[in-house]
Amino acid sequence: MIVQRIGVSVSMLLRMMFRRRIIPILLLAIPAAFLLAVYWTTSERIMPFRLASVAEEVFLEASERNISLLFLAVASVGFLSSFLALNLIQREAAASHRLVLCGYHPLALLVSKLAVLAGCTALIALYVSVALLLFFTPEHLFLMMLGLFLAGLVYGSYGLLVGSLIRGELEGILFIVLLANIDAGWLQNPLFYAEAENQFIIRLLPAYFPSQAAIASAFSDHSIGSSVLASTLYALGFLAAAGVLYFIKMRKK
């Protein structure tokens, strides 16, 4: 019964999401806008940078443009996933609560939202990876795609958490933009990181491990196992917190 309920809910959530025309438009336009902005504003100059998650002495060389393209690709996947997650959890929450009163378990609703989020994030990561291929050829395409997917998963889970915690849409978007901007859109830039004063703080932020996984697989042959594991744990942490809050929100007040 619970599997059937999750299946129905996934199907309905997908219909609701993609019938709002703005969603597919944003999914296609935001990464394209980010990548084109980088392409038009950066040079082909070769820059050495430190691969933070491997070892202190490991420096890589890549063009300023390629580094920036990948860095903003991670940011765009993270931002879009968290926006989708917020939308999934906040939109028409009262109608979702009615479903719970009629018999849906909150967990079944949350799992279905997570499944839709994971599916959409995988599609965004695929689209952004293909778009990156127009500009450069990464060392390990599928591992880079995995890094992008993990960025989406971590930030998507963060979006679910924000949506469970905060009722207002505007406030939720502000929380997402604030963190995504500072973390994925600024501090995780490998060129900034190499010279940053307090790297410990940067390593604690949610986009650190996914960024490292994407960068290491795009520009080197270094293993990304620990980054993948840490990203997954980060996402699970956010998800656990979001699950508890969602459950509290959906039960009797």
Partner: peptide, 9 residues
């Protein structure tokens, strides 16, 4: 109706 049918079991 389909969504709520799933909810009602």
């Amino acid at each position: 109706f389909q969504y709520f049918a799933a909810a009602y079991g």
